[in-house]
Design a binder for these strands. Structure first.
Lengths: 285, 285
DNA sequence: TCGGTTGTGAACATCCGGTGACCAGAGGGC
DNA sequence: GCCCTCTGGTCACCGGATGTTCACAACCGA
């Protein structure tokens, strides 16, 4: 039942660094049949190239890499924490295998091996990684006046596009998809940019600013992205009520997505609070 | 990134279903040294038991399971998608390995194998699981009027945020996670700050004060953090009504089950989780 | 009572996030 | 090819939030 058909349904992107033509040929045929996008390389390629390929998994024969292999393995694994890495190489010692796994490899397979097993192991590795990402895909999301349409790569307010660039859209899509949760910068970067965030990188902050500007202009009465000092950002549509401290109530209200009878008293500021509360409930349920 | 905080410092929980006494002995010694909580079982245990153990990973010899092994493997994997499963068994065919991996196993290791490699593979499996599961989202923890939500990096009283700083939150999260137990300053510092406490450092005390202030303001009728002179601090929700402190037990007992159907939410404190933990520790010492 | 321990308030040092300016490369129209 | 615009990304600055340290008061236990 939980036998992830999702795994096979969604095409994987796989790269193989190897030169064993016989093996590759068989593998190719299998991968073709599975519908995985794949690519073979005869030698190590720069890590940036790997990043650009946006792979799900990488299979590598350490022997191909030569002496710098360990270092290369380590760099790939740390820059792309989300990438599945399977070492598939000739005879090795226990110490070597342990070293490879400790450096960040997800699996180590000894040649000669059956392509089917390699594939099953890649699947297992990717399955582990996908489990959480998978739930992301869904129809238009609405919050406040905002509507996010994945199919259009765009957010709309009242039917008009907010004119988000690709990155901006990916960012808000991620945030909105985790509505109510605080996401740390590292996680955001990892999931939007696809690789590890360098220390001191402010890209996330800058894009949050750009997003806020555009959203503010398009939907002045709502705040969507909230900063949690020292932690990260949280998405939640909150009406910008004239009275200042409406924040805490709104937080509480937005906190319960569906998992229980939220505090029946959804209070906003005094006054029109109930109207806003009702509106919010309607939009978010 | 070296500052991974408490999350990574957390010891792993591992269970092994195997009977190879020689192998187990060596493994035990290694695991002990690593500080992993672990437990050995000589035969398949009900899936519910596995659930209750709240493991990070499970190592299993399929041969032990007998004919129902495949089914058992499948059930464990689908009921506990977050559990790392490593099959460690004798000679097998490619088809068997592929089947095991497809059923949900994360890795398949052939005996005889080196304990160190087994450990490295378990580490790799857990590493990847952790990363994809983002944070170990334990459900909200409740004590007294207080509710601690790790997805919000925040504590709430009656739905309103207590406005804790990141450090303050980490501190109370740690304390509440060890509810009822006295934690020494050194340990607190080590686990929240991530490095050893310098002699004479009062940071912990200062943060306890800040926490107490905020909690007091938000929830005046309860005391949460208790000082143990010369030792450290203990977290326990206690209603503040003048009577004698012997009431503590009763209070706690009464407070616990009162606030909802606990089974759904994973709770800290002296619940079944800690019993298992203690059992694990006892068995391995 | 006394020495050591903890609570407390405030000063001080750091760190963090918002912001605007700036830059380089991609792409598009001519 | 050339120019222009758009986009993603870096940098430096600044004000404010946060963490740390210190001195002293209050407290505990022997």
């Amino acid at each position: 039942m939980t036998t992830e058909r999702g795994t096979s349904a969604q095409p994987l992107r796989l790269a193989v660094i190897d030169t064993d033509s016989g093996f590759l040929q068989v593998l190719d045929k299998r991968l073709e049949r599975l519908g995985w996008e794949h690519r073979t390389m005869a030698s190590a390629v720069p890590v940036e190239t790997i990043v650009a390929m946006r792979l799900s998994a990488l299979v590598v024969d350490l022997a191909i890499l030569g002496p710098g292999g360990w270092d290369y393995l380590h760099r790939v694994c740390s820059e792309l924490p989300g990438l599945g890495v399977v070492v598939c190489t000739g005879q090795s010692t226990v110490a070597q295998r342990v070293r490879g796994l400790r450096l960040g490899a997800d699996d180590w397979l000894t040649k000669p091996c059956h392509p089917e097993e390699l594939i099953a192991r890649v699947e297992a590795v990717v399955r582990r990684r996908r489990r959480s990402d998978a739930r992301q895909e869904r129809g238009p999301v609405a919050a406040g006046e905002l509507e996010i349409r994945s199919d259009r790569f765009q957010a709309f307010v009242d039917g008009t596009s907010v004119d988000l660039t690709r990155r901006e859209f990916e960012l808000i899509e991620l945030l909105a998809g985790s509505e109510g949760r605080v996401l740390e910068r590292e996680e955001i970067y990892q999931r939007v940019w696809g690789y590890a965030m360098a220390r001191g990188d402010r890209s996330v902050d800058v894009f949050v600013r750009k997003l806020r500007q555009k959203l503010e202009k398009a939907s002045p009465d709502w705040r969507y992205i909230h900063t949690h000092f020292g932690v990260g950002y949280r998405f939640a549509a909150e009406a910008v009520d004239g009275s200042e401290p409406a924040r805490r109530e709104a937080e509480a209200a937005a906190a319960e997505p569906a998992d229980g009878p939220a505090p029946a008293t959804v209070r906003f500021g005094p006054g029109d609070g109930d109207v806003v509360a009702a509106e919010l409930r309607a939009l978010t349920s």
